[in-house]
Design a protein around this nucleic acid. Structure first.
Lengths: 205, 186
DNA sequence: GCTTTAAAAAGTAACGT
DNA sequence: ACGTTACTTTCAAAAGC
């Protein structure tokens, strides 16, 4: 009996320590990514839910913590790409992606695909581009999406191409390299999306 | 409007069988020309047939997995070659071992581009998986037939998980009808 | 869960030239 | 800025860790 009692205390302590570790890791990653406090709280609530539903079994604490942070950002409308969260996590991109998909499924998170427009303000401010460029990029995204160009394409690459195109149109040119660096995609992807987008927009350059 | 079912192509058939005899893979690996065997890495010996093209995984237990064939007939032909190769090594092989198809991978074309975003919401976010940041295809799991379909923006699709050739046709029908009734085609 | 095999879809990435 | 190669996803079986 005494042994059972001690075991309970031990596992409870271990659980507390694990939860505390997960929450502090979430906070550390969120700080590194400049994610607002409100979103961190959403991430922590999601982590507790995942914990309550035994979703951590067979998975690493850090993997679930990173995935819930990624999911929380998307849910709150200020997405970080998997590349970005992977950069501050000790779990690799592939593992974060699969854990996210598992958690989203198990917690029935009705996550819509990320709208590339959600990346425009952050990427543009990192590139010090004006409101005008942002507006034009959003317009390109809206118009080309209506024409069916978005299906299957990565939201970050799509946003990057629209920003690159609008920076040209607004005479605030950024190079493909500069845009590629902030969006964490390759120049090749920007080039490919850019060509499709300007063609669909009927722009000649 | 051509029927999408006409576009179905079988891309890969996976089947399992067994010769009803234990094998010493070390000696089979020595005698069988072209055999790849690295027990440290994987317990099965890999043997590739050229015509029809396939890869057979041969295990110590005598069980065999054949993959890469383009039809169920090709699976039988490939395995017949494998059985004969083993007999040439003076290994006893049953006359006609039972061959079980475990999975068939097919591709097809709906003939129209798809708005995957709209389809994701239309089919229900809880019943599909669409993460274009990770993979360009939308994953749709069907209950009947019990297969998994990958839908692409081009209108092309991949159907896998079925054990019968008919499963792909049924799946294409179910998917076409669902998208049609949701007004998501064309 | 992992290891290996094959195959398609389309997007993205990382090489070399 | 090309081209090539390779990786992402889905599926099933096998034996063993």
């Amino acid at each position: 009996r005494l042994r059972k009692w001690q075991e309970r205390i031990r596992t409870k302590d271990a659980g507390e320590r694990n939860l505390q570790f997960a929450l502090s890791e979430t906070d550390r990653m969120a700080s590194a990514l400049a994610i607002p406090r409100s979103v961190r709280e959403v991430a922590c609530v999601m982590y507790r839910r995942a914990l309550d539903e035994n979703l951590i079994r067979g998975r690493s604490i850090e993997g679930v913590a990173t995935s819930t942070l990624y999911a929380a950002c998307r849910m709150e409308g200020i997405p970080r790409s998997l590349e970005e969260v992977a950069a501050v996590s000790r779990v690799d991109r592939k593992e974060i992606g699969r854990t996210y998909r598992y958690v989203a499924q198990e917690l029935s998170l009705k996550m819509e695909p990320v709208n590339p427009k959600k990346y425009v303000p952050r990427f543009c401010s990192e590139l010090e581009l004006s409101e005008e460029v942002q507006g034009k990029a959003n317009e390109i995204i809206d118009t080309t999406t209506e024409k069916g160009l978005l299906s299957g394409k990565s939201p970050t690459g799509y946003a990057a191409a629209a920003i690159y195109a609008s920076s040209l149109l607004c005479n605030e040119k950024k190079t493909q390299r500069e845009v590629a660096d902030v969006a964490q995609v390759t120049e090749v992807t920007i080039r490919n999306r850019y060509q499709e987008q300007i063609e669909a927009m009927g722009i000649h350059h | 409007m051509t029927d999408p079912k006409e576009s179905i192509t079988i891309e890969n058939v996976v089947a399992s069988t067994g010769i009803g005899q234990e094998l010493d893979l070390e000696s089979v690996a020595m005698d069988l020309v072209g055999a790849d065997y690295d027990p440290e890495q994987f317990p099965g010996l890999v043997y590739r047939t050229q015509d029809p093209k396939s890869a057979a995984l041969i295990f110590r237990s005598g069980k065999i997995v054949c993959t890469g064939a383009k039809s169920t007939d090709d699976v039988h032909e490939s395995l017949a070659i494998v059985f004969d190769e083993l007999r040439d090594l003076s290994i006893q092989v049953e006359d006609d071992p039972e061959i079980t198809v475990q999975n068939i991978v097919s591709s097809a074309d709906l003939g129209r581009t798809l708005n995957l975003n709209a389809i994701a919401i239309g089919l229900g976010l809880e019943s599909i998986e669409y993460e274009p940041e990770q993979f360009p295809g939308l994953v749709y799991r069907l209950d009947d037939p019990e297969v998994v379909a990958l839908l692409f923006g081009s209108g092309k699709l991949v159907i896998t998980g079925g054990k019968q050739v008919e499963d792909a046709k049924e799946a294409v029908d179910v998917i076409s009808n669902r998208l049609e009734e949701l007004g998501l085609l064309e």
